[in-house]
Amino acid sequence: MTASKTSPARTSEYTEDQPSFEEAFLKHWASIYRLLVRLVGDPAEAEDLALETFFRLYQRPPQMGDSLNLGGWLWRVATNLGLHSIRSDRRRGQYELSAGKDALDEAFNLRPDEIASAAEEKRLARRALAQMQDRPARLLILRYSGMAYKDIAAELGLSASSIGPLLLRAEREFERRYRILSGGNGE
């Protein structure tokens, strides 16, 4: 009989010279959480989505090669999850109502109309993103979250030289949808 001498707990791509899952979790947790809380706005939802992001890593780790950017991979997964989340409005609406109220209560140095305006802008921006096709929406999220062109290209499977033109198109689309959502008042 041929049987294994050691029995790994799971079928993992991780090897001794790669970070363990736990190491990867601790290293990337904060940046993934921040990305998601900015994207979805709700801290509790962001935490759930961040955990789901790492669950995807745990469940089906990407092929660990020299070219793998684990952080970029996690960002891509988190962006997809966040985008999917902002497309479902129900929970969002409740959160944004209470967040708007909290903002009014707490921001003493801003005029109420400025506070309401800022919250409304975020709401409209999220809705505009939610209405866009996946790739341009992801492109905007990754770029405006601070990811460099070459990393965006790697994560989206594009050439770096195509990012500029695609970003321009995505911004135009975003502005168009924002204008419609704001009744033509948002510029």
Binding site: L26, W29, A30, Y33, R34, V37, E47, Y58, Y144, S145
Partner: peptide, 26 residues
Amino acid sequence: SSRKLAFLSAESEQPVPNAAQALARF
């Protein structure tokens, strides 16, 4: 677009949940 999407890179007022505690929950 940058003004409208600035929230994607703004510093969040919410503290980041502790990573070790998050790992335990995971």
